[in-house]
């Protein structure tokens, strides 16, 4: 069966190419960041006086902090709303409404980040500005980021909840437990792995998001003192400066990309390993 064999070889080769892309990405990030890492080492990204790449000051800390603040803030917003949505479609919504709700959440997931950014800039920022400042600050960015990653939490929690054995729910109901008790004691604990996975995935999305934050966070490099202060995330920094960065500066930008890539990959691998163990037993 010659054609069968060539099919196997060709498709496997294609699979190897697909799988190798991720390595290629890591390779190029490493290659481009080597000059900076060799000259500066890791510590200067945290100990330098400030971020003034043109005068050789490369402190990434404020941007790392801003990235972490916006991402974790986004999760704080997205988790309750997303889990609430998932509980809603499974236990509270009439059937018709549940189907519609799912569809709309999927729609929300498909809205491009620039559109979120545009809406945030024109609609939300002026509202936030009433608390003081220009409205382009970490709070605005966090809220919009939260909305953006919410569908991830909602859809994955929904899947996890829907996969729970019907018998548990019927059994609990037959014991005279009310709806909220069933949700609180049986459903959420039973689905916690899936829900946790959704939240972690949402976190990687939030860490990886660029455009909305770039358009909303104000982009000033400084240690944020409150949620209302402007800030710049690592992603936004790359997007803002790669265009004109030269030599050493460019290399530092790749280092920050490498950091993002590593953090996200570690999280993803952790989740996929965890899911692997679940599948095995």
């Amino acid at each position: 069966m010659r054609s069968d064999q060539s099919l196997t070889i060709i498709t496997r080769a294609l699979a190897v190419i697909s799988a190798a892309i991720v390595l290629l990405i890591v390779l190029f990030l490493l290659r481009e960041s080597t000059p900076a890492l060799r000259q500066l080492g890791w510590s200067r990204f945290f100990t330098d006086a400030s971020w003034h790449p043109l005068s050789g000051q490369f402190n990434l800390t404020p941007m790392i902090v801003a990235t972490l603040v916006t991402s974790s803030g986004a999760i704080v917003i997205a988790a309750p709303l997303g889990i609430g949505s998932a509980v809603f479609v499974n236990f509270y919504a009439p059937r018709r409404l549940a189907a519609w709700h799912r569809r709309l959440i999927e729609l929300l997931a498909g809205i491009p980040s620039v559109v979120f950014g545009l809406w945030g800039l024109v609609v939300l920022a002026p509202i936030i500005a009433t608390f003081g400042g220009s409205g382009q600050n970490l709070l605005t960015a966090t809220i919009v980021l939260g909305l953006m990653v919410l569908p991830t939490v909602a859809l994955l929690s929904d899947t996890a909840i829907a996969a729970l054995p019907r018998e548990w729910i019927q059994g609990a109901a037959a014991l005279g437990m009310g709806r909220s008790a069933i949700v609180g004691w049986i459903v959420l604990p039973g689905a916690r792995r899936g829900i946790g996975g959704g939240i972690i995935l949402a976190l990687t999305r939030a860490l990886g998001e660029t455009m909305a934050v770039l358009m909303l966070a104000g982009n000033i490099v400084e240690m944020p003192s409150s949620l209302l202060s402007p800030g710049r995330t690592l992603n936004a920094n790359i997007a803002l400066e790669l265009g004109y960065a030269s030599a050493g500066h460019r290399s530092v930008l790749f280092v920050s990309g490498l950091m993002l890539m590593l953090v996200v990959s570690v999280i993803v691998l952790f989740v996929s390993r965890r899911e692997g163990t679940r599948r095995d037993g």
Binding site: P165, E167, W168, G171, A174, L175, G176, I186
Partner: peptide, 15 residues
């Protein structure tokens, strides 16, 4: 349901 309990075909203890 507090007054009328139910036992199912498949045992369904919670996890």
């Amino acid at each position: 349901r507090r007054h009328i309990g139910m036992i199912f075909q498949k045992p369904n203890p919670f996890a």
